[in-house]
Structure formats: structure tokens, C-alpha cells
């Protein structure tokens, strides 16, 4: 029960952070801000995948609705990310990590591993996001600079948000 409360808190927090950042930070269309994936990364390991998918869908739709983008854009990308999250975590983490019901955050994984974990999942998210945005592969090459810039900046932002908001609380 306590864990679910934590999930709700981080849901609302990250939604607010996402709304504020995407409203305030504006470097033109070359950079899109996506901080909310942090919520999906850090859902506790051992969460059933079905529940992960539902959370991701809810988060994506909420972000779409509040940041005034096309409905379904963020949710479709975050669904793919949520589906692959357990596999990526398994690949990144040590064996022992899987047995506890932990929140795979900065405090638990350490800097290097968390950065890698975030980077891989964000790359998946961004690729599917830009595909959904232009509905297909046609603009893919054209979108590459945008993709690289956004992945780099968002990884950095996510590390910052994770460090400033959740790191101390969870340690």
C-alpha cells in the first residue's frame, strides 16, 4: 500500500515537472523535452508488465493532454518503453537486484548504471516518439539530429531530476 502511494506521488510530481519544463524550456523544434519517462523507469521491479503498461499509458495520455500535443503521441511511445523496461533492467543490473522489490533509481543502481539504463530506455522512447509524430519512417533520417539532441538533453535532465527530487529521499 505504501508503495502504491509512492507511485502516485511520483506520478503527480513528474507530470508537474514535465508540464513546467515543456512550458518554460523552449529551444525551438530541435529539442523536445521528455522527463516523464523517469516515472516509468523507476516503477518498482516486480511490477507486473500489465500494470506497467497501464501506468505508462496513463502517464502518456496525461502528458499529451496537459502539454497540448497530439493525443496518443506520448502514450504510444511510452507503451513501447514500458514493455521493454524489465528486459533492459535485467540487462543492466546485477543478478541480486532482481530479488528485492526495489525502485530502480539512482540510489539503487549507481550513477553509471542508472545513466546507461536511462539512456537505453530513452532512446527507445524517442525513436518511437518521432515515428509516431511523423507517422512512419519517412522523416526518420531528417529527424536524426533532433533525436540525438533530445536524447542527450533529456538523459541529462532526467539525471538531474532524479538526483534533486528522489535521490536523497530514497537513500
Amino acid at each position: 500500500m505504501k508503495l502504491r502511494g509512492n507511485i502516485l506521488i511520483s506520478f503527480v510530481t513528474l507530470l508537474l515537472v514535465q508540464i513546467m519544463l515543456s512550458g518554460l524550456v523552449d529551444f525551438g523544434p530541435l529539442l523536445f523535452i521528455a522527463v516523464y519517462p523517469l516515472f516509468i523507469f523507476t516503477l518498482p521491479i516486480n511490477t507486473p508488465v500489465n500494470r506497467l503498461l497501464l501506468w505508462a499509458f496513463a502517464m502518456g495520455l496525461a502528458v499529451d493532454y496537459f502539454t497540448n500535443s497530439i493525443m496518443g503521441l506520448n502514450s504510444s511511445a511510452s507503451l513501447v518503453m514500458a514493455l521493454l523496461q524489465p528486459q533492459i533492467f535485467k540487462a543492466v543490473s546485477r543478478k541480486g537486484d532482481l530479488e528485492n522489490q526495489i525502485r530502480p533509481g539512482l540510489a539503487q543502481l549507481g550513477y553509471a548504471k542508472f545513466a546507461l539504463y536511462a539512456l537505453i530506455l530513452l532512446t527507445i522512447h524517442h525513436i518511437f516518439f518521432s515515428m509516431a509524430e511523423s507517422l512512419g519512417f519517412t522523416h526518420f533520417i531528417y529527424n536524426l539530429p533532433r533525436l540525438f539532441v533530445s536524447i542527450a538533453v533529456n538523459t541529462l535532465l532526467i539525471m538531474l531530476v532524479e538526483y534533486s527530487l528522489f535521490y536523497k529521499l530514497m537513500r
Binding site: 496518443g72 502514450s75 504510444s76
Partner: peptide, 12 residues
Amino acid sequence: FLTLEVVSILFI
């Protein structure tokens, strides 16, 4: 997953 994804794409 497929259901939610199809719903998202229908939304788009």
C-alpha cells in the same frame, strides 16, 4: 500492449 497501442494510434 497491442490494444493500448492501437488505441493510441487511433487517438493520433
